[in-house]
Amino acid sequence: MIKVRNLKKNFGPKVAVNGVSFTVAKGEVLGFLGPNGAGKSTTMRMITGFIPPTDGEISVGGFDMLNDPIPAKRLIGYLPENAPSYGDMTVQGFLSFAAELRGLAGDARRQAVERAIEMCFLEAVRHQSIETLSKGFRHRTCFAQSIIHDPEVLILDEPTDGLDPNQKHEVRTLIRRMGEKKAIIFSTHILEEVEAVCSRAIIIDRGAIVANGTPAELKARSENAGAVVLRLASGAAAGVKSKIDGISAVERSVVVSESPLVVRAFPRKSGRGPEFARAVGEVALRERWAVEELHTEEGRLDEVFRDITLPDTGATKEEAQ
């Protein structure tokens, strides 16, 4: 549904986006990650046709955004950053206005407004003017605007920003549910959100894509991914470590804490997978260690994120840890 090729954007001498390419298919939810100022919002603004790119191609549903923007824009629902809306209008009036601009009229428009109000839990405030609402409601009103025409493509710039945990959960559920039938791009700072909602994630740093994959694939890039953690009720650290180091598949091991004794064993490159945990387990069984916990680490997205995007803060890796 969305094809972006070699997208570039310069603001004067500053390069905001530098050669971004990706595609999003129907049924995919793409998470956009990256530090502040990495170019996430700029990329989204270009895809939605708000700002023209310096160079590159954007196609939405087969329509070229640069040469044929109106049919392309028809397919998109967009929630801009900070969820702007016309404060002097009522929630219902605003949604009705959005529906009208989307070409809906008469009964179809009324139904679309009702559906959006229901989906975004706005029933209680439908007749209030937007400027009197709390941030959460204002945010959801703008979100409702983006789904009013049941678009095939949804582009959401920080859709959960400023919401309380319950509202965040609702919005995530909504995105996941809609993601089954739509192509969705959303940006976020919250990494757990990516794991909860996305089928694929892209990490952008300084205008370029530095990672692109499913959340599981990205997590696997983390240093600890595939390592086995063993927690024992008792035992001598040095003895246990040497036994573990003795396993052929183990590359190295680290004693994380002495009491309780926690050891993390890293596999060799070839030895990743369930066999590795089994090998460690067998040794533990043979040595009759009092095992309290044994699990394989999936890796953590925040570690990967920090590893890839760290240089931007100017801090060294050691400082950040």
């Binding site: 939605t48 109106i70 049919p71 967009y78 801009p80 702007p84 016309y86 601009l101 989307r102 605007q145």
Partner: peptide
């Protein structure tokens, strides 16, 4: 100032 221009100009209107 309100950022609604982003909303308006990403609608299917010229």
């Amino acid at each position: 100032r309100l950022g609604t221009i982003e909303l308006l100009l990403t609608m299917p209107v010229t």
